[in-house]
Each structure stands twice: as C-alpha cells, then as structure tokens.
Design a protein around this nucleic acid. Structure first.
Length: 259
DNA sequence: ATGCCATCCAATGGATGA
C-alpha cells in the first residue's frame, strides 16, 4: 500500500497536475493539504472516477485538507481533536484497507507559525500539543497508523539547504523542533529519514529568489508511523520532479510504501 | 531580506504563505 502526501497550494489551481500525477502513480491513499476550497467545491467526482473515495475537510480561501483512498474509508474524523473552538480546517483522518492490516491515516496541515513570537506561533505550538495528545491516545491501541502531511517543521540541519536562512523562522525555532522530536520520542518513525539516514532531500522550495533552480529547499512534508506501521515500511520517496512542472505547487508529493 | 512569487477574494489592493 502506497500512502502519499502533497500540499497542492489550491486544488483548483493545480487540478490538472494532481490528477495527472494520480493517474501516473496510482497511490492507494493521497492526503492533500491547502486545497483552499469548501467541501462542495472539491472535485470529488473527478477523483471518484479515478477510483477513489474522498473525505474532505475544506475551508474557503485558506487551509483545507482531503484524504483520498482506493476502496472504502471508515471512521472519518474531520478536524483535530482537542479544541472545539478551532475553526481552521487542518486535519482529516480515516481508516483505510488494502495493506496486510487496516491502517488509520491522518492527513494534517500543521500551522506555519510565522511570525514568531506572536499569536500565530502560539497557535502552532498549541496545535502540536493537541497532535501529541492524539498520538498518545492512538498508541494505546497498538495499531498501525500514519500521521502525514505538511508539518511545517524542519527536523534537522540536514533537512535544509541554507540553515542560516531559517534561524529565526517558526519552521526551525527550538520549540518547533522540540515538539516534533517529542512526537518521535513517543515511538513514531519519520519514514523517509529512517530509510535515507544521511541523504539531503527537500519537499518544499519557495517560489521566490530562484529557490528551485538553486535547490534552496527544505524537508517539511513527513510521514510519522506508529511502531506497527513502521514494521510494514518498505520504501519512501520524494517526487521532486513535480516542482519542475510549469506553474507548480511549491511542495512536491512524498510517498511511502507499507507491505 | 523587509515576501523577490503565487493563490484567493475582491476589486485597481489586502491577507496569507514558509
């Protein structure tokens, strides 16, 4: 079973690229972030024609996430638990089938947090606390799960081309990294890094200042796996070629394979 | 680098992103 994540920076603006990629790659599960549309404007019918079921948690203009899966989807959760007053659409989770055992997949768009310090950074750290609490709860079940998406966290120096550019950025500040590390310390596995321990590779390149031709990127799109899912992990790949497309998203797909 | 580009909604610019 192949599980992909892709921050598409508007499903409307990049619909053709996303559907072409889906046709070519045929992932079993695809988590999309920044769809930037309400539920009723998500092109679910087009994905259903390609064989997918859709769980959508949309929002006008900003944010918005979707989870697509071949076959049935069960136990859909829309919105990150832990704060009923949170109106930002940044989390969708469901149980999918087709691997050696059922897998629960959470698709997330973690808050950017800039400028830091400030209320946006406070929101980011609070959101990460809620994600930590959810992961702790889910670990009690001893089942296979994957929390994947745009984490907006650079885990380590190896995950960026120009470390000096991110010193005061919310994606790299010590509290952000510490919160990410606390997720890993619960027993979760950063799938791509586990399979490529010394490789520098990126999943985001800014639109500005020639970041793409200079390969001035960062790795911020991750799959965190429960121990039961990590036992199934056989491959992880970053589809960097997608960034070279005309009018691309600023993120590229990241795909893992579970046996 | 103080968003240089890109998206959205709306409207000849503002908010947001990382």
């Amino acid at each position: 079973m192949r599980i992909a994540t892709w921050n598409v920076n508007s499903i409307k603006a990049h619909f053709e690229q996303v559907t072409e990629w889906v046709k070519a790659e045929k992932p079993d599960v695809l988590c999309l972030q920044e769809i930037k549309c309400e539920d009723h404007n998500f092109p679910a019918a087009a994905f259903e024609e390609l064989g997918y079921s859709c769980a959508v948690h949309g929002q006008k203009t900003y944010n918005g996430v979707a989870l697509l899966a071949r076959g049935k989807i069960e136990n859909v959760v829309r919105g990150l638990p832990g704060d009923a007053s949170d109106e930002q659409a940044r989390f969708v989770m469901a149980t999918v089938f087709g691997a050696s055992r059922p897998v629960t997949v959470g698709g997330l768009y973690l808050p950017n947090g800039n400028p830091a310090p400030g209320p946006k950074y406070d929101y980011k750290l609070a959101w990460m606390k809620r994600l930590h609490a959810l992961a702790m709860d889910m670990l009690q079940n001893e089942e296979a799960f994957v929390l994947t998406g745009d984490y907006n966290v650079i885990p380590a120096v190896l995950d960026m081309k120009r470390p000096e550019a991110w010193v005061n950025d919310a994606l790299w500040l010590p509290p952000s990294r510490a919160a990410f590390q606390e997720l890993v310390s619960l027993g979760l596995t950063d799938a791509w890094r586990a399979l490529h321990p010394a490789e520098a590779a990126y999943s985001f390149w800014d639109y500005q200042a020639g970041a793409w031709p200079k390969n001035n990127g960062i790795r911020i799109d991750h799959h965190l796996l429960s121990p039961q899912a990590a036992d199934m992990l056989v491959a992880a790949e970053i589809h960097r070629d997608a960034r070279g497309h005309e009018k691309p998203s600023d993120h590229v797909p990241v795909v893992i394979e579970l046996k």
